[in-house]
Design a protein around this nucleic acid. Structure first.
Ligand SMILES: [Mn+2]
Ligand SMILES: [Mn+2]
Ligand SMILES: [Zn+2]
Ligand SMILES: [Zn+2]
Lengths: 138, 138
DNA sequence: CCTCTAATTGCAAATGGTTCGCAATAGCGT
DNA sequence: ACGCTATTGCGAACCATTTGCAATTAGAGG
């Protein structure tokens, strides 16, 4: 069920039911935090522990299968790693728009003599829908 | 010593020695975290408490005098608010290049139908100096 | 399949950053 | 100077995350 098994075997790691469950959940949702992942996973496996969630998250990060997002909040969010992309967060409805700004950002760095390798970017503002719908906080 | 007193009076807040000490420290250093601020401040006032540091940091944020940075680490960093700017962090020497990308970023948002209000941006990569100095991690 | 062993789990307790309750202290308008 | 109220220092509480440890289990080898 998981090509992840290749990644795991390559490092003497084991493919446990907990790990496939968690990776599955992360892959079918976006921007989950550890606790949301935990709650979703427990519906399948009520004995799962929160430590296992965190340990698995760290493992999947190391394997490059999952990415940790530092959105403005005090805790982290996670998503399955796909193409690099960035986040535009609507201050009114909370929607998170994903878009790929990599090349544009690299160019901005270049203008300052900087060779960008990766970018952590979060724009806060208003989405088109909310902008239409009347005067929100300016 | 502080035009901050105007901001404070305007909200029934008091100008205490702790507050001026802390603001002074934040103003003469860049990117300090709470604990670094605490240690520096204690050299002047050894009885200062860490709670006061955090409370003051929150107050100064509200007053718009200090900005909280969410750099990759697990704790926050703070700096005196000046013009909005962004950070390019060198993976080799750790240097933080500051530059103003606001208008460029706003334009990137606009292309996705988004009205940007503020941006949290951190590019990771290599500064000009380190790039010259030989092959570091690609 | 069965065995063996190292990797993994669940649980509880420890962390590290940040916040809170409270009684004592001290700004500041009068 | 006085008094009211904001602020402080202290300890304990909090929340996200990590860790120690004994019990469980994946999966390599027979
Ligand atoms: Mn969240
Ligand atoms: Mn730091
Ligand atoms: Zn919106
Ligand atoms: Zn450098």
């Amino acid at each position: 069920m998981l090509e992840a098994s290749a990644f795991l075997r390559a490092e003497k790691k084991r493919l446990t039911p907990q790990r496939s469950l968690l990776l599955g959940i992360i892959r079918q949702h976006g921007h989950l935090d550890a606790d949301e992942i935990y709650r979703l996973a427990r519906r399948e496996n009520p004995r799962l522990s929160l430590s296992t969630v965190y340990r698995t998250l760290n493992l999947l990060k190391e394997l490059g299968l999952v990415e940790e997002l530092h959105l403005g909040e005090e805790h982290h969010h996670y998503e399955a790693k796909a193409e690099e992309h960035h986040h535009l967060v609507c201050l009114s409805c909370g929607k998170v728009i994903e878009c790929r700004l990599t090349e544009d950002l690299r160019e901005l760095g270049r203008r300052h003599g900087f060779t960008m390798v990766s970018a952590q970017v979060e724009l806060a503002g208003y989405c088109a829908d909310c902008r239409k719908q009347g005067e929100n906080d300016p």
